[in-house]
Amino acid sequence: MTLVQHVLHKYPAVGRDNLIPILQEIQTAEGYLSKKSILEVGRYLDIPASKIFGVATFYNQFRFEPFGVNHVQVCRGTACHVLGSSTVLQELEKHLKVKAGQTTRDGQFSIEVVACIGACGLAPVICVNGEFHAKVTAQSIKEIVDQYKNRGE
């Protein structure tokens, strides 16, 4: 039995009531919602794939690409916003050539936007693989990310 089937069998095979809990469980298990798993959920619940994709893209919590080796969370909470986190995010996206929610082609980095990670005193703050980096700037973000890249090599 695949992971997705394992999740699905916990729920009755009718209607869309359990759609979101199912998607959440699959994401917890697999890290993201793959095309394959969305299609499988659709077949099980008899819901068109477009509807499931519509629901899943409505919520920020769902991602459609696997995490990178290094997962970068960029805080876009109020304090970080005031201190320029939008520029930080822009620079990061430019530097890695992917948008928030996506993973670089080599699988090294993924970007996620988070609302607040509870470190407003360090704003603007990013978190890479659980490690916090304080008071990042458009310049320093590239260096920080490159450190991780070199670490992997």
């Binding site: 068109p48 477009s50 499931i52 994709f53 519509g54 919520y59």
Partner: peptide, 20 residues
């Protein structure tokens, strides 16, 4: 009875599109 399109994304990013 086809449902090949739906609302995708949210807010000002909403579009009508196909799955994936």
């Amino acid at each position: 009875g086809v449902a090949c399109i739906d609302f995708i994304n949210r807010g000002n990013k909403s579009i009508i599109g196909t799955a994936f």
